[in-house]
Design a binder for these strands. Sequence first.
RNA 1: GCCUUCUUAGCUCAGCCGGUCAGAGCGGUUGUUUCGUAAACAACAGGUCAGGGGUUCAAAUCCCCUAGAAGGCUCCA
Length: 645
Amino acid sequence: MIKITFPDNSVKEYKEGINGLELAKDISSSLANEVVAISVNNEIRDITRPINNDAAIKLHKFDDPEGKHAFWHSSAHLMAEALEQIYPGIKFGIGPSVENGFYYDVDPGDGKVITEDALPKIEKKMYELSGQNSKFIRKEISKKEALDYYKKKGDEYKLELINELEDGEISLYTHGKFTDLCRGPHLPDTGPIKAIKLLNIAGAYWRGDEKRKQLTRIYGITFPKKKMLDDYLVMLEQAKARDHRKLGKELELFTFSPKVGQGLPLWLPKGTALRETLENFLKKVQKEHGYLPVITPHIAQKELYVTSGHYEKYGVDSFRPISTPAEGEEFLLKPMNCPHHCEIYKRKPRSYKDLPLRIAEFGAVYRYEQSGELHGLTRVRGFTIDDSHIFCRPDQVKEEFLKVIDIILYIFRTLNFKDFTTQVSLRDPNDKDKYIGTDENWEKAEKAIIEATEEKGLEKTIELGEAAFYGPKLDFIVKDVIGRKWQLGTIQVDYNLPDRFEMEYIGSDDQKHRPVMIHRAPFGSMERFVAVLIEHTAGKFPLWLAPDQVVILPISEKFNDYAEKVLNFLNNYDIRTLIDSRNEKIGKKIRDNEIKKIPYLLIVGEKEVTNNTVSVRKRGEGDKGTMKLEDFVVSLNKELEEHLN
RNA sequence: GCCUUCUUAGCUCAGCCGGUCAGAGCGGUUGUUUCGUAAACAACAGGUCAGGGGUUCAAAUCCCCUAGAAGGCUCCA
């Protein structure tokens, strides 16, 4: 007999060799129907694998991440089986489960391609095969056996994978006619895979290396119930409706023109209004925190970036230099603002009493991003960083860092951004050549960041190798509607540029010292932030940000004069207001302006003219009744002030 | 940059296998209507079917190139 410990710490004795499925049956038959995987002493396994020793276990259903992993991983094998039947001789790379479903990287063979048209056929085959309820059978084999198997099959990808594995930890899983190198775990059989959707097909480099062969990656998702798939697909549709690229066009916020160039956004009047409101908000916050605004040009001598190290490290990712006609001097479109700001620091000797010096600029920068990487406003070639550089004494680093965290958290709170994660990006200790600066400086900077985040109690992940080339950073990261992660706010500690620019200050000891720089951008870039804000709000911007805050709707053209009066009144209070004076019925005007997501609609007709009132309609809430114009302004102003709490 | 797909009127899209296929709705303009909380009615205007080249008696439709877009991969200051 062995002792099994359950998650609630209860212990029960079972016969040696019992498996997860039998344990589930012992608890309830409904659980047995739903259980898909088991953790045995924190190792996730097949529910059909016997347990031979005392163990702590946890049963997983489709609802939890481990269950989904087993379910989708099994689905990847099912897809592979279907592919092998449709495309004999196809070779397989890796086929893992991912956050939403699974994929398999395959090589259909020379000259053969799998296109999107094939997906329904593969899907159909998968349904057919899942219906056969083929059992997943695990077999542990030696490395030699594994190599022999795949040599015979002629799959060089699997051979490469096996060569990196240790003998004794290799297992194969077979179901139906398909066998795959796999650690598991898997479902007992393919039966539970009831709803299948292959989502898209894309190229993916083998092992993520762009120098190696590009395989075909097929993404799919499966569920135990048809209803769950339907719900998921509906959710995907709804997500698409908040896509900032779609809303940006519909709400006339921004556009792109092939004639201007890829990744170079054109801000339309309404988008500009939104962006300027955000900029003014941050300017006010920064003023309160002792930042000094500066303005610097869009280009600089190439030499400046050689000094800063940008050119050496990232010259290939920049636009090529532009040169003067007569002298042939080379200038670079600025990829970052920091070198300019360093020169501002250096224009005169600084005293320790002058520090910290915080200079800020909404600085436009230009970077040559690969064409395939451009994405709406979130990844562009020309954008504006809400940049600032804080020059401080080493003893001030932590305090300044903490103050910046406070600003970012204040901004996120004000804009109702709750769903973000933070990431501490450190240097990859095994690839130091990627970075500039001394080990000592890096260690100091990394220590300062980690301490600051701990002091603020930020939940964080630590990523090695993600640091900027000049220093480690703390990033605030959000996801867009299609699940892509974007870095918004960022704070970076930098001991290196001060060295490169030979910056100094005179300390209280009358000696020269080197300042430390903190780079920071709460929004990250105006473009990306606005994109995320559009998706976050689905275009229903809070009143203070809405490009058009109020639209007046006269019942008929007879009341246009009164509407004009109301407009002038609201304009006196700096409320962004328009009149919809089209010759349309009131229902039509309401509909059109609701679609434009205008926060407040004011309906004016006979009654309102007589009583000097407006009939108020709030976005998404409908008719709020009639009120005096003055009272409406008071309530608007109250709402406008509330965002700053 | 790489793989796959896509590009038809300002917007959203129809147009199967090459032969009245240049269409619809919204939007726009004009006219009628002057209207009470999510779509009044009518007429009209708008496209070299992304651009270029080719195949063919005939190309929006097939092929090639270029540009742009989408989903991935790689990259990311």
